[in-house]
């Protein structure tokens, strides 16, 4: 749907011509690697966050330190790999879907030496960015590996480019979290090494930062998913079929109803999930001996809930 290949259109219908081409379409390797690394980072930060939370709450067993260390090493390796893979994926997207890149970077007019926009409110009506804060020539450097490289602007694609605001901001959320992940994992690991591989000596703000990033991977993954899927609009199959041409005959009121039901159910389940995860992490110490307790928690209530968990 992003970079369709291996098909032929007969009488307005798509037919598969070559399954290998369909699967191994031009963006497949980039998407695959990018997604796998995203999953790895999501998992690593889940491990990091929960173990840090356990240490903070004084319910950690000796396994928590090992899990935290594993997560940190895992993240420290995956984060730079992900940034590299993301860059390659971006170049691939520039080749096949230049309007998506233009929306991600907030570039309206085709420019040589395009600046990297750090902050802006893209305005679809005025076709320009408001409150722009940018680093000169950096976008061209990143995307063309040349400070004066040309980036095609959105105005080159009249009525065939995605809505700019969500793509622009989701991209910044994803990249921001990615860079944060790199910093947190590297600084965390460095600090851990300086502490003699002992998390009891790790500064509490650092552990709190770890805990705060428990679900960062999910946020980044979903933001990235929005970038690529909203960025494909207005097409459902890029360049070939518009989404509006294949919309369902189901009345829009039904679609609105089910969408709100799904949102409500998933929000409720999300709350329940986080609650259960928190409860599990705080009661997981049955059977294991606590390793880090002194000074880490105020109350001695750590074993109270033992036995409820079965």
């Amino acid at each position: 749907m992003q970079t369709p290949a291996g098909h032929e259109i007969v009488d307005g219908q798509f037919h598969a011509r070559n399954w290998l081409e369909i699967i191994f379409n031009p963006s497949f390797p980039y998407r695959f690697v990018h997604m796998m690394l995203a999953s790895a980072l999501t998992c690593a930060f889940l491990l990091i966050g929960i173990s840090a939370w356990q240490i903070l709450r004084g319910v950690a067993t000796d396994s928590a330190s090992r899990v935290l260390r594993t997560g940190l090493i895992f993240a420290a390796l995956a984060a730079p790999a992900q940034i590299l893979a993301g860059d390659l994926h971006g170049l691939n997207t520039l080749k096949h879907q230049p309007q998506k890149i233009a929306a991600m970077e907030g570039v309206w007019e085709t420019t040589r030496g395009a600046p990297l926009v750090l902050f802006a409110i893209p305005d679809d009506a005025a076709r320009s960015n408001r409150f722009e804060l940018a680093i000169p020539k950096l976008a061209s450097l990143i995307l063309r590996h040349d400070p004066d490289g040309e980036i095609k602007g959105l105005n080159e694609f009249p009525s065939a480019h995605p809505p700019v605001f969500p793509v622009f901001w989701c991209f910044r959320i994803m990249v921001g979290i990615g860079i944060l992940m790199l910093l947190v994992s590297w600084i965390g690991l460095w600090r851990h090494w300086r502490d003699g591989w002992d998390f009891a000596r790790m500064p509490r703000p650092m552990l709190k930062l770890f805990a705060a990033m428990t679900f960062a991977g999910w946020v980044a993954t979903i933001a990235g998913w929005y970038v690529t899927e909203i960025g494909r609009q207005p097409f459902i199959v890029f360049g070939l079929i518009r989404t509006s041409d294949v919309a369902s005959r189901v009345p829009s009121s039904s679609v609105a109803l089910t969408l709100s039901i799904y949102i409500a159910v998933y929000l409720a389940l999300l709350v329940a999930y986080v609650g259960v995860l928190k409860y599990m992490s705080e009661t997981a110490d049955k059977g294991g001996a606590p390793l880090i307790t002194e000074g880490a928690t105020a109350g001695p209530q750590k074993h109270q809930r033992q036995g409820e968990f079965a």
């Binding site: 039901i261 799904y262 159910v265 389940l269 329940a272 999930y273 609650g275 259960v276 409860y279 599990m280 409820e308 968990f309 079965a310």
Partner: peptide, 17 residues
């Protein structure tokens, strides 16, 4: 929705409080 609730409840009933 029914299947989702069911699947979630199946796990959470023993893992939650």
């Amino acid at each position: 929705v029914g299947l989702i609730l069911r699947g979630a409840a199946f796990d959470f009933r023993v893992k939650g409080k």
